[in-house]
């Protein structure tokens, strides 16, 4: 039997795009958080890392090129937008849907669904937070370094931004990546085991991120 209508591939494409962008973002976040954690080894380590990423090694002056940061941030911005576009069809748009979601949560008690709701709400919050973060980075790419960062965090409200973004992005990303695994992988049993790994990784990342953030704050207050 031949398919009667030419299949519409949009949904499939978006599904794949959503997963791929989500995975890239998650990997980026993982890396990002660990690089951020270099502050725990001291300001020098953080600055060395920052300079390395600015390709300080290629620049004879040793400052590196700030435009690299702008490009990177732009690329990430693009990926985030792509992700948002791809997942937008899953985001409930009608108020009635939120009501259903809430009512359902009251009747049926299911952990996996609760986690998804966290993912939804964290995603919506990040819709605001990530652009702030990325635009900041694009606007002042040269001001990345242990001191400027600490100042930003302590005095320019960075503590609030990161204090929200860090846990939200971590929860969103770990929940997302587990979901991605369950969605596609032919060997995804037992799913309960996967869920417990997720929990462990999430806790670890939040501890790590909090420590880095506190270190910046400590440094900022010291200065």
């Amino acid at each position: 039997m031949q398919p009667s209508v030419q299949p519409d591939r949009r949904a499939a494409k978006r599904e794949v795009a959503q997963g791929v962008t989500g995975a890239i973002l998650t990997l980026f976040l993982l890396l990002h958080l660990h690089l951020e954690a270099s502050i725990l080894f001291g300001k020098e380590a953080f600055d060395a890392m920052a300079s390395f990423l600015h390709a300080g090694w290629a620049d004879p002056t040793g400052h590196g090129y700030s435009f690299l940061v702008v490009i990177a941030a732009a690329i990430l911005m693009f990926i985030v937008l792509l992700h948002v576009y791809a997942v937008s069809r899953k985001i409930p748009v009608k108020l009635a849907q939120y009501r259903k979601l809430r009512e359902h949560g009251l009747v049926v008690n299911h952990g996996g669904t609760r986690l998804w709701r966290w993912q939804l709400y964290s995603g919506l919050a990040m819709l605001l937070l990530i652009p702030i973060h990325l635009i900041t980075m694009m606007v002042i790419p040269e001001q990345i370094g242990s001191e400027q960062s600490a100042a930003r965090i302590v005095y320019d409200g960075g503590w609030l931004l990161y204090g929200l973004l860090m846990p939200l992005s971590i929860i969103h990303a770990t929940a997302g990546i587990t979901r991605l695994w369950l969605k596609w992988c032919p060997i995804s049993e037992p799913r309960f085991f996967g869920r417990s790994i997720t929990r462990g990784v999430t806790v670890y990342l939040i501890v790590l991120g909090t420590a880095s953030l506190l270190m910046h704050i400590y440094n900022g207050l010291q200065a």
């Binding site: 519409d8 591939r9 949904a11 499939a12 978006r14 069809r89 998804w116 369950l182």
Partner: peptide, 16 residues
């Protein structure tokens, strides 16, 4: 192949 089918599923796994 649409949002009513497998691509509408968000792998909440309440079903399973």
């Amino acid at each position: 192949g649409g949002d009513d089918g497998v691509f509408g599923c968000m792998t909440l796994l309440g079903c399973a």
